[in-house]
């Protein structure tokens, strides 16, 4: 599923609209409440900040490998993909429709979390999105997340991702609650040196998340690879019930017991039995997957 096209086309560098165009079957996408409807944030003018006509998220329906899906894509370049009132409500509405229609959902994450200038509305929107996601999954509908955007997937966005039925990540994808700068600002540079990019990747990057079972599929930073990954993720089960959550509880407890005193990602990978753990960040996708497939902690649909 990682076979990159001969000419790689970066997912990370693409815009949200560009990613959707490459992800879905050509010409299949219809946007709901698009920019011409001018449903932008009413709160940014207060801070003398410009609005964007789609409020940084595109929602609509389309087809993925012939299969009808609902899709949402966050634009990480507009305010870091941050979630405000309108942005959040668009995703909530899409998820509620998915529940009614029994239609799978693909979310293209690219977000720093709550939008500061409308923090209360954004925080509450995330809670509504989480509830809508869980209620949708309870109906057997898949909600899958793709993680490979510029802004990463941080803050409340990472909690939404944690509620998805399956996740696809690239090496560039970062998944974490507190971002490096937030940890450094609050706890000091000794706790986290946000300029140490290698540390960022080892702690919250795609390879680490894949190795510990935090995500289900690892793909190249390539639009075709993400499309193939999304198709594969839509084959994973959506079920969310007592058994799934009991299995997730056991899985997360086992992780803490196994790795809870590890000081660094490389130490976690060593305990997994990964040979030469220090070289993991340098491995290309196929070499990484060869090792990871046999050594990683799988999530086994326990999410």
């Amino acid at each position: 599923m990682t076979s990159p096209s001969p000419t790689r086309h970066s997912w990370y560098e693409e815009s949200a609209r560009g990613r959707l165009a490459h992800l879905l079957d050509p010409g299949s996408f219809t946007e709901f409440l698009g920019p011409e409807r001018r449903e932008f944030s009413p709160h940014l003018g207060l801070f003398n900040l410009p609005h964007q006509l789609d409020d940084g998220i595109i929602v609509g329906n389309g087809k993925l490998d012939g299969r009808p899906v609902l899709a949402a894509a966050q634009e990480g370049r507009f305010m870091g993909g941050a979630i405000g009132e309108v942005h959040g409500a668009k995703l909530t509405g899409l998820l509620r429709a998915a529940r009614q229609m029994k239609r799978d959902v693909v979310i293209l994450f690219d977000t720093g979390g709550v939008r500061l200038q409308e923090a209360n509305a954004g925080e509450l929107a995330i809670s509504e999105i989480i509830r809508a996601t869980l209620e949708t999954r309870a109906e057997g509908v898949r909600v899958i997340g793709l993680l490979g955007g510029r802004a990463g997937c941080y803050g409340g966005g990472s909690l939404i991702a944690g509620c998805c039925s399956a996740l696809v990540i690239s090496e560039q994808g970062r998944l974490s609650v507190s971002g490096p700068e937030v940890i450094e600002t609050n706890k000091g540079v000794e706790e986290f040196d946000s300029r140490d990019r290698a540390l960022v990747w080892r702690t919250m990057g795609g390879k680490h998340r894949y190795l510990i079972g935090g995500v289900d599929l690892f793909v190249d930073d390539d639009v075709a690879a993400f499309r193939a990954g999304a198709v594969a993720a839509l084959e994973r089960p959506a079920a969310l019930n007592q058994a799934v959550l009991a299995a997730e509880q056991a899985r997360l407890e086992r992780r803490l017991a196994r790795f809870g005193d590890a000081a660094d990602g490389a130490e976690v990978w060593a305990r997994l039995g990964v040979p030469h753990p220090a070289t993991v960040p340098d491995l290309d996708t196929s070499a990484f997957l060869t090792i990871a497939t046999s050594k990683r902690e799988g999530a086994d649909a326990a999410r």
């Binding site: 989480i130 869980l134 990472s158 909690l159 939404i160 991702a161 944690g162 509620c163 998944l175 974490s176 609650v177 507190s178 940890i183 702690t203 919250m204 680490h208 998340r209 510990i212 935090g214 969310l240 959550l245 997730e248 509880q249 997360l252 992780r255 803490l256 790795f259 809870g260 590890a262 660094d264 990602g265 976690v268 999410r303």
Partner: peptide
């Protein structure tokens, strides 16, 4: 964050 706080907090919400 190394241990996957986002998964764990999401799990609590679930």
């Amino acid at each position: 964050e190394l241990m996957g706080l986002s998964e764990t907090l999401a799990h609590l919400a679930k």
